[in-house]
Simulated assay, not measured.
Amino acid sequence: MLDMSATALAVVQGSYTMDIRAESWLGGVLLADSIPVSDGAENRDRSLSVPEQITLTVPRREGGYDWDPGTDPAHPLAAYGQMLRIDYGVDVGGQMEWINRGWFLITESSTDGDTVSVSCQGLLTLIAEANLISPFQPSSSDTLVSVIRALVEPALTVSFDGTLIDRAVPLGMQWDSDRLGAVTEVLTAWGTAERVTEDGYLLIEPVSDAGASVLSISDDRETGTVVRWQGATTRDGAFNVVVAQGEDASGNQIQGVTYDSDGTSPYAYGGNFNPLPVPYSYQSSLLTTVAQCRTAAAAQLKLLRRQAFRKLQVTMVPHPGLVTGDIVSVTGAGLTNARCAIESLSLPYSPGEQSLTVRVL
């Protein structure tokens, strides 16, 4: 969860007064510090390669300034590298406490009458759109850390969790065009995942659903909180075992296997879903030992559960401290204090309701 004071955390459990503050930056230079946002929304979805999507509505003229970017490449709302820092304000005792929601790249701005519409995406857009112009081949001295830095920096500064153990990259690796795809392959083989922090850094950390609950959510229609099961279920793409395959230094094929042994999982191996193994297979030349294959398989199982597991839809009063990946405790739809992870969310930038999709852990 994003940093908030205890007072603000208490306030956002009920009705409160909110505001949005948007700053525009270009090349490290502040262009505007008080963009008049009249409406908008923030959407995050961990299943997307670029999880964050922002839409803003800005009056064309406000405070004597024309917010129509026109053809000016240095305008605060132009899409030539301009980034917005968004802060969500909560009225605490007559003063606004500002919660930083992060940095977002302007991808499109258009004017219709007296309104300017602005679309933004997360900073991973910089990596997704920057395809390699020639094959990328790591050298004999490269490691997983140095390869990720080479693929991502200087567009984003990379920070690595202190628990990660770096290792050498096998000779002969090559990526032809998809820069973000290359980063994803390295992260998957390492058993890690990436996220852009609210400070604009790319954090690499182990795949995990660990952590304490940051919020308790209870189905209470009178206060506006609604909890219900997501109305979809399918066997398509389901699995109960993950197989990660690689190749050792002698050219022999190796593999590591992880079974879904969670007794609460509807896909658990040996359970009702299928008494036989239903595998999801993954192969990478970055895996050179059985131990690495097992680690990658276990991490891949956790990632796959984010798409293929029981989910709840929650509608509630907006909580500006929540982000995807947060752990919450949910009571409702037949569950009591169920530990859940937020997989997607929609946060309005004007008074309204927030929606969450949470996965039951």
Score class of each variant (00 low, 15 high):
S355F: 09
V58Y: 08
V360C: 04
N272Y: 15
V328I: 07
A128T: 09
Y259Q: 12
L171C: 09
F136L: 02
A150I: 05
L203Q: 15
E343W: 06
T258G: 02
M83A: 10
S159I: 15
R61F: 15
A298I: 08
G70C: 05
R339E: 11
E185L: 08
L126W: 05
G200C: 00
A22N: 06
T233P: 05
G89N: 02
E62I: 04
A79T: 02
V29F: 10
P135S: 07
M1Y: 12
P76Q: 03
E23A: 12
E42H: 14
A296D: 06
A22Y: 01
G28H: 11
A210Y: 02
I342W: 05
G271Y: 10
P51I: 01
P351W: 02
A232L: 13
V90A: 04
A212N: 14
P279V: 01
K302S: 13
S265C: 07
E222V: 15
R46Q: 15
T197F: 04
E185M: 10
R195P: 06
W103C: 01
F273C: 05
V196Y: 04
A155H: 13
P51D: 04
Q13F: 09
F104L: 09
L31N: 07
G237Y: 06
D39S: 14
L164V: 11
D236W: 13
E185A: 11
T258H: 09
D260L: 04
S34G: 10
L151H: 06
L202D: 07
T192G: 04
P73W: 00
G256Y: 06
G27T: 04
S329W: 06
G231M: 11
V92T: 06
T289W: 01
T17K: 14
V330I: 11
A244T: 09
S34D: 15
A298N: 10
S38D: 13
D178S: 08
G28N: 06
Y269I: 10
L164P: 09
V152K: 03
I217C: 01
L123C: 09
L151V: 05
I254A: 08
V314G: 08
R294M: 11
Q300A: 10
T7I: 14
S49W: 15
Q354P: 05
M96N: 13
G191L: 01
S119H: 12
G200R: 08
G256L: 04
G211D: 03
V186F: 07
A41L: 12
T357H: 01
D19V: 01
A32Y: 01
I217F: 00
K311L: 08
L303A: 11
G93A: 06
A155F: 13
K311P: 02
R195E: 14
P320W: 01
Q313I: 14
F160C: 03
E23N: 10
L286V: 05
V242R: 09
Y349F: 13
L304S: 11
D68Q: 03
T223K: 13
R44N: 04
G27C: 03
A168Y: 05
L30A: 11
H319G: 01
I35C: 00
G63S: 05
P69H: 03
V330H: 00
E129S: 12
I127M: 07
T289K: 01
D161Q: 08
G271I: 06
A232H: 14
L286E: 08
D19H: 13
